[in-house]
Design a protein around this nucleic acid. Sequence first.
DNA 1: GATAGGTTGCTTTAGACAGCATGTC
DNA 2: CTAAAGCAACCTATC
Length: 706
Amino acid sequence: MEFMSLEELNADQRIIDVIKKRGIERLNPVQTEAVKKGLMEGKRLLITSPTGSGKTLMAELGMISFLLKEGGKAVYVTPLRALTAEKYNTFKDWESLNFKVGMSSGDYDSDDEWLRNYDIIVTTYEKLDSLWRHKPSWLKDVNYFVLDEFHYLNDSDRGPVVESVAVRAKKKNILALSATISNYAKISSWLGADAVTTNWRPVPLKEGVIVQDRRKCQVIFQDNLTLTLNGSDAIIAYTLYTIEKGGQVLVFRNSRKMAETTARKIAAEMEKAPLNDKELLEVANRIKDVDDAGGNEKEELYNLSLKGVVFHHAGLSKGLREIIENAFRERKLKVIVATPTLAAGVNLPARVVIVGDMYRYNRKILGYQEEIPIMEYKQMSGRAGRPGYDDYGESLIVLRNKRDIEKIFEKYILSDPEPIESRLGNESSFYTFLLGILSTEGGLNKNEIYDYSHQTLLDREIVDDYLEKGISWLNENDFIEERDEKFRLTKFGRKVSDLYVNPFTAKTIRDYLSRAETSCELAYFHLLAYTPDGPSIGVSRAEQDQLIDEAYCPLFIDEPDDEDELYEYLSALKVALIVKDWIDEVDEDIILERYSIGSGDLRSIVETMDWLTYSGSHIAGVIEATEHSRKLEILNKRVKDGVKEDLIPLVQISGVGRKRARLLYNNKITTPEDIVMNPEKVKALLGQKIGEKIAKEAAKLIAGLH
DNA sequence: GATAGGTTGCTTTAGACAGCATGTC
DNA sequence: CTAAAGCAACCTATC
């Protein structure tokens, strides 16, 4: 274990100053090794090391020293919008060296060309992929790419994009950062990079299992240390044990419901725990005052937080999630019981991590529970141990059965994660990849497409197979055309690539719309939700029969016979009904109740349908289905803000949402002009301060139109 | 006859990226 | 292609 001093680093003094300002005195062993392997000289590296081993600083050293020497731009890519925002904030430190930092993702989006003003751009894999297709002028100035959380390459949904980005990025200088992977040698040689691999962690990790044995729980650590606790529930017993000793606990469960009930059970036992009621009351009030709709989860979280225990999953609104994460970081909340959301994502360590379930239901195969990937376990256990607070972290796997002990130790604790492999080997991903390269590169002949495709991680034979099929499929379906032996995107293909929708989504939309007359709102939503890009949502047994009755108008798609397809069809119908309620201005809490979804779910459905209505409208435009296009355009405006058509002019004003707009409209203020004309009335309706602000925004909007 | 506690049968099951216009976080 | 936990309705023992 070698720690390099900042003096030895031999870097520009301004770099040292920034690092020192953060309270960092020396480089840790991972960082030291990376520096020795040429990080500061712009050497191509693949760094695989555990969570919290200071990979971000390595990326910064790499980027900054490269920019100082070579000029140009650096792009830092992450798989999550939350990570993009987090990195953006840390990289702001480098503005003292006159490097301008920008970010671009679905959340915080900049105009493509505007990004030229930045030296460091933080973005997501999908956004970068999309940028490449739009070819903004500055992209050729980027000579350094940092590919963060590179193990996402192995994700079946998102991996293909990571790989496409890597294929393009590796033509330039790259630094790939990844969790520990077993086949790093193969990956680094594919990337043309040197590998830096260590298992060094800033806080040591003690792993073990905890087994339920009647009224007692047996804890067995890796180092053979054992411990017996009283209690008939292993999770509760060890959580209480940890809290008594002043630690925080992160519990993982594999369903939302279980996360909630486990949180309730722990909270019920918290009477004897040492809690700071004043702090918790303050947290509880933050939860109560959150201004995005929290649904009925809000009240429950309020009560739970008074006991220092909360649950956390994607059904929660963004505001609630943030409050919980911050309060845990502030060490006010003692326990979070979460679904896998918190395993990846932003940094949120705890002294103890309890992995409650080693199996997960597989939605594709009935009755089949698969063991969770080792990588996923490592991501969870990696959250154990807070630097500066804990001497070591503990990660415990809960076992229901004694005879699993050895197997679990062998598989999860003593082994490396599974190798990461290409996920491009299926029609949908590969065809998307082909569309992407033709979009970026312009016209290519067959040989050039071959060469390009062989840059992927995929085996040659598989590439060749999909290539033939892909080219003819894209050709037959009018995404591409052949001219002078070169393949180019058609107008339709170009549009699909720009919209960033899956080609199968585009084909579905085009095929149905081109042969049908216009239909009702519900039918459009249903069609969009039924595509591969549509939101998927669970449909309960009881809902299934009801859904068909609620479809009040003819849909574009006929009811399928196949059972699985029928489920997809009904799921899309449920999405359609939710979005229909949303644009009919049904109160948010009523929607959540009616469809038993969380407010986070509603937000994500609306977000996706916003994108898809926009895309649908433009696809209809290209195939000259003008009526469809016009209808979808109006729906898009309504979905964005959740309003009926008459409110569209009002919600264009920033600060005016569905509720304020309806209030104004009911009082005969129906346009931005009305607001400017009657500022006093607006103030009377919305309050002095808000009214004033909105009047200003309305004036700005009108000015912008002229 | 009320009630605590058990049994049976049925149901449900994680997460989160993308366009554009806006101002430029 | 190998399940498990929650929940409501019903059942049973006990006082």
